[in-house]
């Protein structure tokens, strides 16, 4: 079987796995953004107690490996779920949850950094015209902070995509897991991993392009330095 024939036979399985990878990435980054934004706002604007809670959460999630988090959520929690009369999570749900909870911690730190990079005068100007703190954050601070955060957020998106392979520890067939299975079943180890690698690369390039486009569209006129010295 030629490489192309081989690719053709295994493609359906790989494409299915890509679907799972994308799902993990989308939920991880999306839910992670919502939670991360909340954590960042707690860190910067909330009272001491809430800020400390957010801080502990972030430290904890950033200080433990994703694998452990995935394993705890999938294998560690079900006994407690049972005790509470709840059904255990499917491996996909557990994977998504772990990705989101983990990514939220990183995104929270990126967003917090961006918020703090905005001059305090912006908040003062907003408050001095009678905006509430919430309005000022929503209409003045966040629109600027989220633009600042976009480049590091692109990084986080790519990491999330690549680290979604971690869920193979709970037997969820995403792209890495599928390539491993195909490699051992067919014995065509090199080709299997190359195909998976190229598919990851394609996804990363596509996502980077989309984000680069978003960055240009959202750029604030006059603010970016376009001149390049030697």
């Amino acid at each position: 079987m030629s490489f192309f024939e081989f690719t053709g036979t295994v493609m359906p399985r790989f494409l299915g796995a890509v679907g799972v990878t994308l799902e993990l990435t989308a939920v991880g980054i999306g839910a992670g953004l919502v939670l991360g934004l909340l954590l960042a706002l707690m860190r910067v604007y909330a009272n001491r107690v809430l800020s400390a809670i957010a801080n502990v959460y972030i430290q904890f999630m950033r200080g433990t490996p994703l694998v452990i988090q995935v394993l705890v959520i999938y294998f560690g929690l079900p006994p407690y779920f049972k005790a509470m009369g709840l059904k255990p999570l499917s491996s996909l749900a557990a994977g998504c949850l772990a990705m989101a909870l983990n990514s939220a911690a990183y995104q929270a730190e990126y967003i917090r950094g961006a918020i703090q990079a905005i001059s305090s005068g912006q908040m003062q100007a907003a408050r001095s015209m009678g905006m509430t703190k919430t309005q000022a954050v929503r209409y003045v601070i966040l629109p600027q902070a989220l633009r600042i955060v976009l480049p590091s957020w692109s990084n986080e998106l790519i990491y999330t995509l690549l680290y979604s392979s971690t869920v193979y520890f709970i037997g969820l067939e995403e792209l890495s897991y599928a390539s491993m299975k195909v490699a051992s079943k067919t014995g065509r180890v090199f080709e299997s991993y190359i195909i998976a690698g190229v598919m990851y690369l394609a996804m990363v390039i596509l996502l980077s392009r989309i984000l680069a486009y978003a960055e240009t569209r959202l750029r604030i006129p006059g603010l970016s330095i376009e001149e390049r010295g030697r």
């Binding site: 005068g121 003062q124 015209m129 009678g130 003045v140």
Partner: peptide, 22 residues
């Protein structure tokens, strides 16, 4: 205080215009 501030204009030394708005 928000109600009061809406009636008192404030012009800053360093402008503090909202950078993302025209």
């Amino acid at each position: 205080i928000n109600h009061v501030r809406a009636q008192i204009g404030f012009v800053f030394q360093d402008f503090n215009l909202f950078n993302h708005l025209n």
